[in-house]
Amino acid sequence: MQLRIRLIALENILIAVLADGSDIQLQMARQMADYISPRPGFTQHPLTTHAAHHMTDLVDRAMHFRSMQG
Rank of each mutant, 00 (worst) to 15 (best):
Q69T: 11
A52D: 04
Q25T: 12
Y35T: 08
P46I: 08
H45E: 12
A16W: 06
Q27D: 14
G70W: 06
M1H: 09
L7R: 10
P40N: 06
D20W: 06
A33K: 00
F42Q: 14
L14V: 03
S67G: 04
M32E: 02
L18R: 00
S67Y: 07
T49Q: 12
I5C: 00
T49E: 14
D34F: 01
Y35F: 13
P46H: 09
P38V: 07
L26W: 07
R66L: 04
F65S: 06
V17W: 08
G70R: 15
V17E: 11
I8T: 11
A51K: 00
M55T: 11
I13E: 06
A52E: 03
G41V: 06
S22C: 09
D57S: 13
H50K: 13
L7Y: 02
D57C: 04
G70I: 08
Q27N: 13
Q69V: 07
S67Q: 14
M55W: 02
P46T: 11
I24V: 14
G41P: 00
D23Q: 14
H50Q: 15
V59D: 01
V59A: 02
R4W: 05
M68C: 05
P46E: 09
L7A: 14
I15A: 09
A16I: 03
Q25Y: 01
R6P: 00
M68T: 10
